[in-house]
């Protein structure tokens, strides 16, 4: 049933073996009720003679294969509503095989290197394991991940900064899924640091695009970072978090010059001298830390928290 309206779809076309450069092919598709992006692509091939390459299997948000970028946002083609004007690109942050088909093998390799399988402390006893829902809560939340890599496609650390040392959010979800399992005893902090977890900039782009609604940053990455902060002596990101916390204990608020000196070390801080001086002239640097009023209260709270830990 058509509504009389059309979808104008501008589709990315590129065959690296034959084409010098990518191009776009625009076509008009009759807009149908409840039409999905996947339906638009099906129409292109079946009714419009446009031999665009794309990948899909289940069509119901289970297999995680049909990721594409629509108007700049990574989505699943099978779960995204078609809109009157769409630019459909392959997922960013991975090489193009042809048209909308991408090669995820490097990202999948990064996941494999994290050894995301349960490594038990003790041998498996028998079914059922004595686990409560609560024991299992954190890991369970991540078990709905369908490994579509849409979160990794949205990550600006990879796209804007091309920081390839970062394993990306999808691999970290797989790592967290086992790390948060109550029976796991694997070396998860080492794996997280190897995947350069502290390159995460806490922007929530991954959480924003997850098709199954996982808050990737808070439910996976942040929980791993907490373990790293507790267990890693030397990692600069872990150290920075501890230095930051100690400054709050001492002053109640941050004193940026002290934070910089302690976190970066004296030598690297000296390299920032000209900027610091310019900021000082603008009244942006207080040489001595200010302490918030009622700091005694704050310290009492630190004590109350640390007593439990």
């Amino acid at each position: 049933m058509t509504s009389g309206n059309t979808v104008s779809a501008k589709i990315f076309r590129y065959d690296p073996a034959a084409d010098k450069a990518p191009r776009y092919e625009t076509l008009e598709v009759p807009l149908e009720k409840e039409m999905r992006v996947l339906d638009v692509l099906d129409y292109a091939v079946e009714n419009a003679g446009v031999a665009v390459g794309y990948r899909w299997f289940c069509g119901v948000k289970r297999c995680g294969m049909c990721g594409v970028s629509v108007n700049g946002k990574p989505v699943l083609a099978c779960w995204e509503k078609a809109t009157p004007s769409m630019v459909i690109d392959p997922l960013p942050n991975m090489p193009v095989v042809r048209d909308l088909v991408v090669d995820r093998s490097a990202l999948e390799q990064a996941t494999l290197e994290m050894e995301p399988c349960l490594k038990r402390k003790e041998p498996y006893e028998s079914f059922p394991e004595p686990l409560t829902h609560r024991d299992f809560e954190d890991a369970y939340r991540l078990m709905t991940c369908i490994e579509c890599y849409v979160c990794t496609a949205a990550c600006p650390v990879l796209s804007d900064a091309n920081h390839r040392e970062f394993a990306g959010p999808a691999s970290l979800v797989q790592l967290a899924k086992v790390a948060l399992h109550p029976k796991d005893a694997g070396e998860r902090v080492a794996a997280a640091l190897k995947g350069d977890i502290y390159a995460c900039i806490s922007c929530y782009e991954c959480s924003n695009v997850c098709p199954v609604g996982i808050n990737v940053l808070e439910d996976a990455i942040e929980k791993l970072k907490r373990r790293c902060a507790a267990q890693s002596e030397s990692n600069p990101g872990a150290k920075h978090a501890r230095i930051f916390t100690d400054l709050i204990r001492k002053f109640g608020r941050i004193h940026p010059p002290t934070l910089m000196r302690q976190s970066k070390g004296l030598m690297q801080s000296v390299s920032k001298m000209s900027m610091a001086l310019a900021m000082y002239r603008k009244g942006k640097v207080q040489v001595r830390p200010q302490t918030v009023q009622g700091i005694e209260e704050v310290r009492k709270l630190f004590k109350a928290v640390e007593k439990d830990q």
Partner: peptide
């Protein structure tokens, strides 16, 4: 004036109970 830092990302990334307690205050 007596409120503390909300912990930026650093306190929440390292100590959840402290993060909750400081902001609850």
């Amino acid at each position: 004036e007596v409120a503390t830092c909300t912990g930026s990302r650093q306190i929440r990334d390292s100590n959840e109970e402290l993060f909750l307690t400081l902001n609850a205050r």
